[in-house]
Amino acid sequence: MAMHTRRATLTPKVLSYSGLAVVLLIVLIPYGYIALTAFKPAEEIFDVRWLPRVWSLDAWRYAIEFEQFHVYIYNSMIAGLGAAVLALCVAVPGAYVFGRKQFRGKDVMFYIIVMALLFPFVLLVVPFTILWVKIGLYDTMPGLWLAYQVFIIPFAIWILRAYFAELPRFLEECAMVYGCTAFKAFWRVMLPLAKPIITSLMFLAFLVGWNDFLFSNMLTTGQGPRTASVIIYVSAVGGERVEWDVLMVMTLMAGIPPVLLYILAQGQFLKTFAVRSY
């Protein structure tokens, strides 16, 4: 790639490294402390010191064997993935048309989306719960997938629209001159070009499902597809005494999979761009 051959002068280097260092410290100081807390035995939790005096796996054992936390992690994973796939199936075609085509009612459509972005979601909880029970979606995974769309679809359209609109306008026209149908021009030309942004959005949509507490809490029961965020919330505020060490273990278990996923998805981005420049 061309990047490696470019001579980087001193100023950008200094700026980049110091910016990176500041942000990394802001993220890593709290996290380092938590990660180490997860290995402390219960009686050391409130000693303010970084390294545990005695390294202990008790909290991990408790979280996995007693709380069965890995089951909830699995639920979160399915909830996030399903929500992301459903969201993109709906939002990508919508955003494409909205970003690139002219049609009657486009301005109305614009305000429909803006309003959807601003809605105070907390007010939807009760109406949704009532409706979900009525139509049999309560306490099911598809019910969660559908409910998450309230968050995902408006922002996915919002971001994709900007991306599609900024691609050069003659692309589809060229494709159609060469005999593509309107659909093929979308499928063969526009979609591959939007791959990096679609991957990022898929990831953000996954995180909405992974992180959500509002609907996951209201629309599921202990017997159904409870997600990890609900379990963690309950152990953080539920009992009389918070088991901080166990909570920190759960925190790490819930935090690491998306990070790994993102690092893997990065490879996907890089591949896209490697193809593009040479």
Partner: peptide, 26 residues
């Protein structure tokens, strides 16, 4: 780079209620 990018993501990679709990502890 890809490692740092992953690290940057960490605060948002877990439910906000969890992050809230962490800060209550800290």
């Amino acid at each position: 780079k890809s490692v740092w990018r992953g690290v940057m993501l960490m605060p948002y990679a877990m439910p906000p209620v969890v992050v809230g709990a962490i800060w209550m502890y800290l």
